[in-house]
Design a protein around this nucleic acid. Structure first.
Length: 286
DNA sequence: CTAGGATCCTGTCAGC
DNA sequence: TGCTGACAGGATCCTA
């Protein structure tokens, strides 16, 4: 699910609806999905929304924060006068809520925020605002592509020289923000085969990869992420926004936009991986 | 230390 | 139709 662009989309979109609003009540339907005592944040006001990699932080006015990670299938759906839904795309965006996949609801002054999560990998947890940066997950995050230099990334790649480049760029402690979609898209854009060992990537290729990562994520954020938002009509839910900008992801069997060769799907680093076998030729030496 | 695989959980889809 | 296995936009834990 949601990668950096989707979480950033959620942050920007949700802000307009929930900033300066108070949490009146929290209902937890699945204990695994919520860590902490909900009553300690009830009546607190939302004063800021921040993002660290794929994690969303909602700061409250009582020195506590909600840390939200959507993992694979998490969604945040605000339902008030309007509905704003983002995260893992599904019919939940327009469905009646709460429903079977609703794990937590936050009742606000002006509406309800639903945390839906089919697979229950995601979570909301309460942490002290001052401890956000010390959180075990946040602490490990590397820089995002915009803050990282090519020499920095190149050095990290050498440290993991025997791993597939795809596996390396998915590691949030190496470079932060890429997930399965943007890893594939960045590698395609850089003409790098996902199975190449990180140690075989040249400095120039590293530079290209870094620039590609920035470009594909910027493009996604600009178009509202690959997620859907502001939906009111049920007939819109079938639309796949990913198609609008993805070059290879979920495009297996379709012609490569650069050379026309059929896009391949193959398991790399334990993940479904899409690439053009012609543009992204394997390089033998490493 | 790195590298690779299993695992958490629910739902859907292809194939028999 | 019913069953089965594979797979899913993530991250962690375990093992070698």
């Amino acid at each position: 699910m949601p990668e950096l662009p989707e979480v950033e989309t959620i942050r920007r979109g949700l802000k307009d609806f929930i900033l300066e609003k108070r949490i009146k009540k929290i209902e937890v339907y699945c204990n695994k999905s919520f860590q902490g005592d909900p009553t300690t944040v009830e009546s607190a006001k939302i004063i800021n929304l921040r993002r660290f990699g794929k994690a969303l932080i909602i700061d409250l006015d009582n020195e506590k924060s909600l840390m939200i990670h959507l993992r694979m299938t998490g969604q945040l759906i605000y339902d008030g006068k309007e509905r704003y839904a983002a995260g893992h795309p599904s019919d939940n965006f327009t469905a009646k809520l709460p429903n079977k996949q609703t794990r937590v609801t936050l009742t606000l002054d002006n509406g309800t925020l639903y945390f839906n999560d089919q697979r229950k990998f995601g979570f909301i947890k309460i942490i002290e605002t001052k401890n956000v940066k010390n959180d075990s997950f946040i602490k490990k995050l590397a820089k995002e592509p915009w803050d990282m230099t090519a020499p920095e990334l190149y050095e990290k790649l050498q440290k993991h020289k025997n791993s597939a480049i795809k596996a390396v760029i998915l590691d949030q402690s190496i470079i932060c923000g890429l997930g399965n979609i943007y890893a594939d898209e960045s590698l395609f854009s850089s003409k790098i085969n996902p199975e190449r060992k990180a140690g075989s990537i040249t400095f120039d290729e590293t530079n290209l990869l870094l620039n590609s990562a920035k470009a594909v994520m910027e493009k996604s954020i600009a178009s509202g992420g690959s997620t859907m938002k502001n939906y009111v009509k049920a007939d819109g839910t079938k639309g796949d926004y990913l198609d609008l900008f993805a070059q290879v992801f979920h495009k297996e069997g379709q012609p490569c936009p650069r050379c026309g060769t059929k896009i391949i799907k193959k398991k790399v680093a334990g993940r479904g991986t899409h690439y053009c076998p012609h543009c992204q030729k394997e390089v033998k030496n490493d």
